[in-house]
Design a protein around this nucleic acid. Structure first.
Length: 763
RNA sequence: GGGUGAUUAGCUCAGUUGGUUAGAGCGCUUCGUUUACAUCGAAGAAGUCGGGGGUUCGAAUCCCUCAUCACCCACCA
């Protein structure tokens, strides 16, 4: 044995040994005891085109659990996979296209999908190779990709079933829409940016005095009411009345409604209601039956065609001015239009005050920070209330338990206030929603497609088909996007129901498919794996996707099977930099785990991530800490080396050793037994840090520094050897889940079967 | 606005249901080339456990309160 442990000489070879031994697959796992219940964990699928980041390293808790239960003799399944990651991946791909000077608009949706598929294929494989570098003992034979046929089939089945059960519906509803990204986002995908914007006080009327305040004067053209608090003495007498005033586009009539939700303290206490472009106003509109009048189009541009078209022949100079204004605003981006509108309002003396330093929160999408424009449009929704009820009950009945327990409360808070879930995304990369629209029944479908000459054409299907140049087939083959108006007739079908049909171009929210991961990976409902491994034992992930993913898996699983998909949710640490700050590219404090593995070995990194970590709490990763555990790897190696040297220097052989009855030796054995008990209990209770550190402490301080040093002077080398060998080999087992490579490497030096499938010590 | 977590040695953090002199790693000081390991060994310094109050025979641990930091949810025109 070399005098220092060189991880590079061992890690890859050992991983190969494990793979070849069949240990990673429960069907070939040598020590699998069929009479014992299987132990199953599903790896949260990383993005297929991702590479490893420090956060992935925390999946080590899963490897620890899997290795521990494998050593207990349970048939053990750790099922890996990758996610297509919908919008995130398409965003990455679009940046890639931009670099090549092109964009998604140059391709029909099928071509674009195929190209992204290829792009993802080209980048896939790295993440699995990197997970292997960390020593993760996944069953690669069952690796699943979110777009595999078996996954897509189950997702389609679920959708069809939900449509039938009335759990999925199509509705015209206000959604978070990003004009820049061209897609809807769910509430969870929206975040808020604090911004400073001018806050305008606009006079609507002098007698009675009505001044409203807003940051969005450009939307006032489609206001459908003014609202005040019913108890506001300033406006009490006006409630229910209709006032008339002069707007930039002529006289406007507006009724005044009252609602408790209007805050008397805020601004002037009276607000404009724009149901088409504000979620709160939309809700008010529903309550008071106000019309929804859109003003901003899907590209984020002002649409004044509603005014222009109906005011084509102005009779007065006023009317000419109004029309001129409407034309000026029309087609402008929101921000630009706002400027022009404010200028005109200023000129008209309508703006009485501007608070330039008003700070407020603006909705942006979580990934790119593009502005969210609340828009009313048809989307597919999942009715979540009925799904949530059993999911809440399951947690209350302890069918699912959270580690740490406090997340149970977070889970309830979200589940009890759950809102319907918009699942359609206007992107290409994902699983297409299996809906078809007949062009005959729906002549008012709006489509964008590339014609035979690759020109981009947008229009209404009925009109386009009246043109000799276009057939349904042309539209279908060049199709980029389709927008079906509310009330369109549709057929739920995976394949085209006929020649006269055009497909829904929306795809599912990526979480709609990943939410069914326990079902799709295990081949619900009749797969052997499903019968064997479902429900699984532990789901481990970080707390940031508790709602996105964990909650959805619980809901889907209960909906489809009546059972929870896993009994324990373990929420591992967020990996931060050494100062405890969140890692981010912009801060430049991102640690590359593979570099640390190269430098110090996977075992060292694993220990650094586990030692001192607690579920639900952040863990600071520093190179120093990793180096410290690299030293421990070397310590283990050298203890092994010392034991080997003992046998080489003496005549006795390792096969016939017996632990002596010397009190010094017996005491150590007793302490070892305590350690085995403690480690086992800690593992059973998800106390990984304690389990790792108690073994670390025992090996280094008790075994190496104390016992080993003291016994160097002893004459009865054979007895010392016996004790050392017994104690140390047990310690290797205890440490194997945490430091699989070095423990296996030493084990191999001792000869014999693989450590990975050796029995866990008993106490 | 609602909620959660954190605050323990210079740094990063453990401390399970309250129980003897509060722990680890790194760092620091002094010494050591003892053939397992200098990726080491020996010895050592260092904390009134955020402030205040309370419960208890006993509190880092339970309760109240304040402060600071971090995060989550909602988002007021």
């Amino acid at each position: 044995m070399d005098s220092t442990y060189s991880h590079k000489d061992h890690e890859d070879k050992i991983y190969k040994l494990w793979e070849e031994s069949g240990a990673l697959n429960p069907d070939t796992q040598k020590n699998a005891d069929k009479s014992k219940p299987p132990y199953t964990i599903l790896l949260p699928p990383p993005n297929a085109n991702a590479s490893l980041h420090a956060g992935h390293g925390m999946f080590v808790v899963e490897d620890i659990l899997v290795r521990y239960h494998r050593m207990l003799g349970q048939p053990t399944e750790w099922l890996p996979g990758t996610d297509h990651a919908g919008f995130e991946t398409q965003y990455v791909y679009e940046k890639h296209l931009a670099k090549q000077g092109t964009s998604r608009f140059q391709f029909d949706r099928q071509t674009l999908f195929d190209d992204i598929y290829q792009f993802v294929q080209d980048n896939s494989g790295t993440i699995f190779a990197q997970l292997k570098k960390l020593g993760f003992s996944c069953d690669w034979s069952r690796a699943t990709f979110m777009l595999d046929d078996k996954v897509v089939k189950i997702v389609y089945d679920t959708f069809a079933q939900m449509v039938e059960d009335g759990m999925v519906y199509r509705d015209n509803y206000i959604v978070n829409y990003s004009p820049k990204q061209g897609t809807t986002f769910s509430d969870l995908e929206v975040t808020y940016a604090t911004r400073q914007d001018p806050f305008y006080y606009i006079r609507y009327s002098s007698d009675p005095e009505i001044i409203i305040s807003t940051v969005r004067p450009e939307t006032k053209f489609r206001d459908t009411a003014l609202a005040c608090n019913p108890n506001d003495p300033r406006y009490k007498d006006l409630i229910g009345k209709t006032i008339t005033f002069n707007g930039l586009l002529g006289p406007v009539e507006m009724q005044i409604i009252a609602d408790d939700e209007v805050d008397m303290e805020f601004g002037t206490g009276i607000m404009k209601v724009t149901p088409a472009h504000d979620a709160h106003d939309f809700a008010l509109g529903k309550k008071y039956d106000l019309p929804v009048l859109p003003l901003i189009d899907f590209m984020g541009k002002m649409d004044f065609s509603w005014y222009i078209d109906s005011h084509q022949s102005p009779a007065t100079s006023h009317e000419s001015l109004y029309l001129e204004r409407a034309r000026k605003y029309h087609g402008k981006k929101v921000a630009e239009a706002r400027k022009l509108i404010v200028e005109d309002m200023m000129a008209e003396g309508m703006i009485v005050k501007v608070d330039e330093k008003y700070t407020h929160n603006v909705a942006v999408d979580y990934k790119t920070g593009s502005d969210i424009e609340p828009m009313v449009m048809p989307n597919w929704f999942v009715a979540t209330k009925k799904l949530a009820a059993p999911a809440i009950a399951a947690a209350r009945n302890k069918k699912v338990q959270f580690v740490p327990a406090r997340f149970e409360k977070t889970y309830y808070d979200w589940m009890e206030n759950i809102r319907d879930w918009p699942i359609s995304r206007q992107i290409v990369w994902g699983i297409r929603i299996p809906i078809w629209y007949s062009v005959k029944d729906n002549p008012n479908l709006s489509v964008t497609f590339l014609d035979k000459d690759k020109n981009r054409v947008t229009g209404i299907v009925g009109e386009l088909l009246g043109d000799i140049r276009y057939t349904t087939y042309d539209i279908l083959s060049g199709l980029q996007s389709l927008r079906a108006p509310m009330g369109a007739k549709y057929v739920v079908s995976v394949d085209s129901p006929g020649e006269d049909f055009l497909p829904e171009t929306d795809t599912f929210d990526t979480w709609f498919s990943s939410g069914q991961w326990p079902l799709t990976t295990l081949n619900y409902p009749n797969g052997d794996d499903f019968n064997r491994f479902f429900p699984t034992q532990v789901l481990d992930t970080m707390w940031d996707i508790l709602f996105f993913w964990v909650a959805r898996m619980i809901m889907f699983s209960l909906y489809k099977t009546g059972e929870v998909p896993f009994s324990t949710v373990y929420l591992h640490s967020m990996v931060t930099d050494e100062k405890g700050a969140k890692m981010s590219k912009s801060k430049g404090n991102v640690v590359n785990p593979i570099e640390l593995v190269d430098k110090y070995g996977a075992d060292a990194l694993r220990m650094a991530l586990i030692a001192g970590s607690a579920p639900g709490n952040p863990i600071a990763l520093s190179e120093n800490k990793v180096r410290g555990y690299r030293n421990f790897s070397n310590k283990l190696w050298n203890i092994g080396r010392y034991i080997t040297l003992l046998t080489e220097q003496s005549e006795f052989s390792s096969s016939k050793v017996q632990v002596s009855s010397q009190s010094e030796d017996k005491k150590l054995i007793d302490e070892l037994n305590d350690l085995v008990k403690k480690t086992t209990e800690n593992l059973d209770n998800y106390r990984f840090s304690d389990a790792a550190l108690s073994a670390y402490d025992f090996v280094w301080n008790r075994l190496a520094s104390d016992y080993l040093e003291k016994t160097k002077s002893r004459e009865d080398k054979e007895a010392v050897f016996a004790t050392l060998y017994t104690v140390f080999s047990t310690c290797l087992k205890l440490l194997h889940p945490f430091m699989p490579f070095v423990t296996e490497a030493i084990w191999q030096e001792f000869g014999g079967e693989l450590l990975i499938t050796s029995p866990w010590p008993v106490y």
